[in-house]
Measured scan of single mutants.
Amino acid sequence: TSIVNVSSSLNVRSSASTSSKVIGSLSGNTKVTIVGEEGAFYKIEYKGSHGYVAKEYI
């Protein structure tokens, strides 16, 4: 489990790309479970499925 480190919110994306669809967002200090990594993104558990967040904010 890791913590989201942002002051406002962090986009959760459908794939490991800044141009991919935003499927949701997480607020600062939210706990997330990392299940993998791809480039500059972590794959996380998100709403019963998976999403991707930028590593620099975790």
Rank of each mutant, 00 (worst) to 15 (best):
T1Q: 12
T1K: 09
S2A: 15
I3N: 07
I3Q: 09
V4F: 05
N5L: 12
N5Q: 10
N5T: 14
N5H: 12
S9F: 13
S9G: 11
L10R: 05
N11M: 14
V12R: 01
V12L: 03
V12D: 01
R13M: 15
R13K: 06
S14I: 13
S14K: 13
S14T: 07
S15E: 14
S15G: 12
A16L: 03
S17H: 09
S17R: 06
T18H: 15
S19R: 11
S19P: 05
S19M: 10
S19W: 07
S19H: 12
S19G: 10
S20V: 03
S20I: 01
V22E: 03
V22H: 04
I23F: 03
I23K: 03
I23A: 02
G24C: 06
G24W: 06
G24V: 04
G24I: 05
G24P: 01
S25P: 04
L26A: 02
L26M: 06
S27Y: 10
G28Q: 12
G28L: 13
G28S: 13
N29E: 08
T30A: 12
T30Q: 11
T30N: 06
K31A: 11
K31D: 06
K31P: 12
T33V: 14
I34V: 09
I34Y: 02
I34S: 01
V35P: 00
V35L: 14
V35W: 05
G36T: 03
E37A: 07
E37R: 05
E37L: 06
E38S: 07
G39H: 05
F41S: 02
Y42P: 01
Y42C: 05
Y42M: 04
K43W: 04
K43A: 05
K43Q: 07
I44R: 00
Y46L: 03
Y46P: 00
Y46V: 02
K47D: 09
K47E: 12
G48N: 08
G48W: 04
G48F: 05
S49H: 09
S49M: 12
S49D: 07
H50W: 15
G51L: 02
Y52N: 01
Y52M: 00
Y52A: 00
Y52S: 00
V53Y: 02
A54K: 13
E56S: 09
E56F: 09
E56K: 14
E56N: 08
E56H: 10
Y57F: 13
Y57N: 09
I58W: 07
I58Y: 06
I58L: 11
